[in-house]
Amino acid sequence: MTELKNVYKSYGAQQVLSGFSLALENGSRTALMGRSGSGKTTVLNLIMSLIKPDSGEVIIKKGTRFGTVFQEDRLIEGLCAEANCRLVMKPPYDRANELLSRLGISGELSKKPAGELSGGERRRVAIARALLCDPEMIILDEPFKGIDAQTLPAVISETDLAARGKTLVLVTHSEEEALALSCKIVRVPE
């Protein structure tokens, strides 16, 4: 169980979260929705302990392993898709190529440095990396942005499959995406 209790967080004069609470059961799926700047990414950062709340409590099991798709891809530009995935995973490494090819990154494309991939391709590599690191909790911050409509169903389906039995937190503006991943929708108030 992961919990945020009555959390306040501000950046300078800008108050982002005011008394925000959230409870995530192990194995649950939650989609955080709300307007831009409402603090959705801040909630994710609090869960991953990347930032501390000004007040309130964040309860999370120590040593939780996260598989994260950040708002930006945060890939290592000089590394190819497969190497980016292998960097965070444990053997067998064949899983990387298998998942990447199911996400449409195969052949020459998987050997290209990440810096030479298109926005949508980079996003798919970032998703693969998050799913391949054997996470206990999957944190996805607008993971499907930039992915073309043709590829999107396969990407969502792979995410759904990999997230089985794991806690998933999704930040999205699309209710369709949240429903496709069977997420409980939580509105983050402004």
Binding site: L50, R65, T68, F70, R74, I76, L87, V88
Partner: peptide, 16 residues
């Protein structure tokens, strides 16, 4: 710093 944060989240390790 964003890549360093990514390395911390994914526990990439100091050497890598």
């Amino acid at each position: 710093p964003k890549l360093l944060e990514m390395a911390r989240v994914f526990r990439i390790g100091r050497l890598r």
